[in-house]
Amino acid sequence: MSGYFKELFTGTKSLAVGMGVTIRAFFSPVVTMQYPYETPKIPERFRGHIELVADDEGKPKCVACGMCQRACPSGCITVKGKKREDGGKGKVVSFYRLDFTKCSLCGQCVESCKFDAITFSKEYNLASTRKEDFIYDLLKRLQEKNS
């Protein structure tokens, strides 16, 4: 019988202590961020989908060596190159398509690039009902960004 009353006492006390936590939380500052009215700060290393990097003249650094295409686990990247127009050595990129529907943002393309020609973007507001919206022409994207 004494056990019953003891449990009644400790049980009621535990509920009161728990209620105390709730009351303290009620009067403490709000931690919820009111997205989309406030937006979070995106850290420097955030991995969005990849994009091409331009050199000082605004042209893509990419030489279409195809290392990123080979490194990609899911075959998201299609890259094609053409001979340089000025007759110089090497190639320039003529086509760069990213199929973001398959990408898992592992970063092996960026890691494999020896020319620092691709980087992670900071895009995170990506939502669409159409699959085509996630197939990016990165070369066109870069040209639009520069113009």
Binding site: P43, R45, F46, R47, E111
Partner: peptide
């Protein structure tokens, strides 16, 4: 959320991290 913010700042992702590499870490 505090942990996710911390890990996001080094790994670049919040949930499905791909941070460790053979022979070390990504950065």
């Amino acid at each position: 959320e505090q942990i996710l913010d911390l890990l996001e700042s080094v790994t670049g992702a919040r949930l499905t991290y791909c941070y460790f590499r053979f022979g070390g870490v990504y950065n």
